[in-house]
């Protein structure tokens, strides 16, 4: 399988604290990879580094062979990386469908003036955006709420909406930061179904979560971080039996 993301010796330190330390990781196209680890292991920080939300201290991340060093977040998004957030970050001031329509931003290009004048190109593009948004909303089962205020949705649906919004940007890679946290068992199952369907369509998914059953259920490969260091990588089966991983989770010194 072709490599989609390659992280080489990625390190991030905040003052004296090293949150992520020399992590090497490869995510291949069409793969579902999970990033797990105890609290404070640096999973969310690694996601933030992968999306360019904060600069790396050292190391390199290549997406499709293109280094993201020195690129800001929106430029990384243009490379085809979409993400969701641990604490759901919807545009509270917009309707459900408008939220998804913002997701289409990176592959459209209408500017201020053609938008203000409603030129022909703008019109065509708006139709595409709308079609995409409807498709994504149907995919996550939120079409009935399309015109509702995003802030009024129940929490589980807000998570789904955030995924729909990310998908609308037609990414190569979808990063999910704790997508199952705060969801009921049924909602988690729905989410797993959705992710499987997305991956079946050729999407690559990298997710962080604490729900082990969910993670082991859907991922092809799992990477375990502990205190910023990668301590294990392998199939869910290998990971579940890896003594270092068990030690990290139970807090026993390995070896």
């Amino acid at each position: 399988m072709a490599t989609l993301i390659e992280s080489i010796g990625v390190t991030k330190s905040f003052g004296g604290l090293t949150a992520v330390s020399r992590v090497d990781m490869i995510v291949s196209r069409g793969q579902t990879k999970a990033l797990i680890g105890p609290n404070g292991a640096g999973k969310s920080t690694l996601l933030n580094l992968l999306t360019g939300m904060m600069p790396m201290s050292s190391g390199d991340i290549r997406i499709n062979g293109c280094s993201i060093v020195g690129r800001s977040c929106y430029e990384v998004a243009e490379l085809g990386v979409a993400r969701t957030f641990q604490n759901v970050q919807l545009f509270q001031n917009m309707s459900v469908i408008e939220n998804v329509m913002v997701g289409c931003h990176s592959w459209t290009k209408t500017g201020l003036f053609s938008g203000a004048l409603r030129l022909l190109g703008h019109w065509r593009e708006e139709r595409d955006i709308y079609a995409e948004a409807v498709e994504r909303l149907e995919q996550v089962g939120l079409m009935q709420e399309a015109d509702a205020d995003a802030s009024g949705l129940p929490f589980g649906k807000q998570r789904m909406l955030e995924i729909a919004r990310a998908l609308a940007s037609r990414p190569n890679l979808l990063l999910l930061d704790e997508p199952a946290s705060g969801l009921s068992t049924r909602e988690t199952a729905e989410l797993a179904d959705l992710l499987r369907a997305i991956v079946a369509d050729g999407m690559t998914v990298l997710l962080v979560d604490h729900d082990m059953q969910f993670v082991m259920d859907i991922s092809d490969e799992v990477v375990v971080l502990d205190q910023g260091v990668k301590i294990a990588e392998g199939t869910p089966n290998d990971i579940q039996n890896d003594p270092r991983v068990i030690a990290a989770y139970l807090g026993i010194e390995a070896g």
Partner: peptide
Amino acid sequence: NIVRSRVGRAFRAVHGSEQAAESLGV
């Protein structure tokens, strides 16, 4: 027109959450 266009949505997205807007390529 602007408010209902791509750029207008980007404006409102900036209001809603700058972080999320950036992550979507705005």
